[in-house]
Amino acid sequence: MAEQPAPDTTPSSTPTPTNDDSGSTNTAEYWQANIRILMILLAIWFTVSFGFGILLADVLNRIRIPGSGFKLGFWFAQQGSIYTFVVLIFVYVVLMNRLDRRYGVQED
């Protein structure tokens, strides 16, 4: 690997191995876990927007959000999907930061 010379600055609290010899299997596992997180979050992303907001909008429009004038499909298309998107990114940040630490690939 090219970016070697910098002294390994990972401090005390990381129990997982970070040396480069076991790196390749570790790296592959890290990448797998990363892809799994992506798939789950993107499935939710697709469901709330394309699913609830578009494909199923007509069906969901028969349901109303209790106590409001919102038809459910319409609400997902103009409000709900956007709220979900924001939450998704912050969930991603938390999951990935945790994953980085577990595999010892975080930046500091």
């Binding site: 979050l41 993107l42 992303w45 927007s49 907001g53 298309a77 103009q78 999907s81 956007i82 998107f85 998704l88 990114i89």
Partner: peptide, 10 residues
């Protein structure tokens, strides 16, 4: 609304 916000998730 969805197009210009959902892109940020990607």
């Amino acid at each position: 609304l969805m197009g210009w916000t959902g892109g940020y998730v990607l």
